[in-house]
Design a protein around this nucleic acid. Sequence first.
RNA 1: GGGCGCGUGGCCUAGUCAGGAUAAGGCGGCAGCCUCCUAAGCUGUAGAUCGGGGGUUCGAAUCCCCCCGCGCCCGCCA
Length: 576
Amino acid sequence: MIDKDTIHTGVPMFLDFMSEVEGLLHAALGSCGYKVEQGVNNLGLDVSPHADLASSVAFRLAPLLKKSPVAIAREIHQALTKNYNYVDRVELSGPYLNFFMSQKFLDTVLQQALADNAWTGRMNEKVIVEHTSANPDGPLHVGHIRNSVIGDTLVRILRRAGCTVDAEYYVNDMGRQEAMVVVGLDHFQLDGSKADHAVAKVYIAANRLMETNPEIRTEADSVISRYEAGDEEIVAKVQSAIKYAIGGIEETLHRMNIRHDSYHWESEFVRKGDVAEILGQLEKTGLTEYDEGAFQLDLTAHGFEKKMVLKRANGTSLYITRDLAYHRWKSENSDRSVDILGADHKLVSGQLRTALRLLGVREPEVVIFEFVSLPTGSMSTRKGKFISADELLDEVEKQAYEEVRLRRPEENEAFLKEVAAQVATGAVRYDVVKVSPDKATTFDWKQALDFEKLSAPFIQYSHARACSILRKGEALGEDALAIQADLLTGDNEISLLKKIAQFDLVIDRAARELKPHQLATYARELAESFNHFYRYSPVLDAEPTLRQARMALARAAKNALRATLDTLGIVALETM
RNA sequence: GGGCGCGUGGCCUAGUCAGGAUAAGGCGGCAGCCUCCUAAGCUGUAGAUCGGGGGUUCGAAUCCCCCCGCGCCCGCCA
C-alpha cells in the first residue's frame, strides 16, 4: 500500500522524483567534499535511454579534481545514502550515475493519474498573455494563426501549471490600417460575406484606389487625427467598423477553441492620459529631442541605430508610444506578462523593452515566431495575398469528414460532422504548435491535410481507443480504479506509466521557458507509448487481477492524454 | 551595408539555451500484421560525414570564430 502522506492531489510527480535525486546527489557530493558550480542543471541530470534519470556530474568534476570521471562516479556512488523513497536504485555505469524509479513511485503515479484533478501544478503567479492582436482590417490568415495557436497554447500551459492567466487582445484602433478601412467604407460597400472577409475586401479596394487617387491618403490622415482628437462622428465610425471585423475574427478563433478574456483598445491609453504621462517621463531622461517637428527618443547608447519616433510632427501618437502605456498597465496588473509577436516585430519590441527599462517598468517576456509564407512568397492582407484561417479550416474539415465517413460508415451525419470538426481543429492547431517558433515555415496544403502519426488525430485516436477499452470494461463490471501497479510488469506498461509521470515536468518546463512545442512532442510520445501498450497488453482478455490493473493503467493513460490534449486546445474525442 | 533568426537522410521536423553513453520521429520508398479491446494503429527495412571550414574540450548537432545559403527587420506603418 501507499503511505497516505505521500498522496497529495495536484502535486507534481516526476518533479518529486527529480528533487529526491538532486537531494541524494548533493548529500553524496557533500560527504565526498565536492562542490558543483552554480548553474542550471549543475548535476548534469537528464532523462536518458539508459535510466529514468542519469547524471553526468562526474565529467564536470573531473577537470577540477584532476581525477578520472569513472573514479569520481564510483566515489559518489559509494557515498550515496540508501535512504530511498521514490528512487529504487542507483547504478554505476562507467562515469554515469543512473537512477531508477521505485515501485512505490510508480504506484503513486498511477494513483495520482487516476485522481480527477491530478494535473495542475503549483505555480500561482498572475500572468497576462497577449496574443493574436491582429489588425481588424481583415480575416486571420495562416500566419496570424501561428500567433493565436502559440499564444493560446501558452495560456493553457500556464493555467495547467497553476497560474491565473488573462488572455488579452490588444486592438489597434488608431493605426493607418484601420483608417484605411474607414475611408474604404466611404467608397465601397460591405458585400454581406463573413464580417472580417467583407472588411478585407473594402480595405484591399481602398488600397488599390489609393494607387490612382492620392486623395485617399489625405482622407486617411484626417481620420487618424480626428479619431485621436475624439471627433464623435469618426469615433463612432471607427469603432463600429472594428467591432464588426473583430466579430468575424472571434468567430474564427472560437472555431479553433481560442478565447480572449479581455480586449484593450489602444485609444484607451490615449484617452486616459497615460500616453501623455509617459511622454513626459521619457522627456525627463534627457534622451528626447524634436527633429523636424517629430518628438523622438535617442536610443543609440542602447545599441539602436535609428531614433524612436514617439509623436508625429502633426501631434498624433504612434503605435509604439501607446504600446509603452499598455505595457506599463500590464506590468502593474500581473506578475509576468508575455507577448506573442511575429519576427517582423523583433526590432520594435527591442526598442520598446529598452524604453520600458528607462521608465523603470518591468519588461514583458517576448515569444517571437518566424514567418509563415506561401510557396509563392510572403502573405499580405493589404494586397489580398493570403490563405485565410477559415479557408484552411474548411478544407481540413472537408478532408476529415471524408476520412471519418470511410471509417465509420454506419454513423449518422451529426456524428460525422462533429468528429470532422474536432479533428480539423486539432489537426490545424497541432500542425502549428509542433514546430518550434524559431523556424520559418512554408504553408503546404498536402502537409496540412495529412492526418497520420505526427498529427492531432494520432493522439485523439489513442484517447478514443482508451475510452473504448474503458467503456467495454465498465460494461463487464470493472471499475478501472483498482490500484495494483505492481502487477504491471511488462516493458510497455512500465514505460507508459513512466511517460505519464513526465507530464508535470513537461508542463513545468514549457511554462517557464514559454516553449509550447515541447508539449506537442510529449503528446506524440505519450500516444505512441499508449499504442504499444494497446498492441501488446490486452486488457479485456487478461485474467481478472491483471485485467483490473490494466484497466487502471488504461484510465490513467486516458486521463493523461485528455489533460495533454486539453492543454493543447484539442478536443479529446471519446470515439472517432 | 548592419542587426536578429534559421540551415539535421529525397521532403518535413525533434534534439542546440544548461556539451556526454549507438543523432530521434514523421512523410515518401520497399516488405509484413485485421477469426486479436477502433488498422487515423503496429512491426521490419533502406536512407545523415547534423550547410562548409577552423577552434575550445577527455568528449561538439549543441559552445567560440570565419564563410556560404535562406528568412525577417533597419518607416513621422503596425
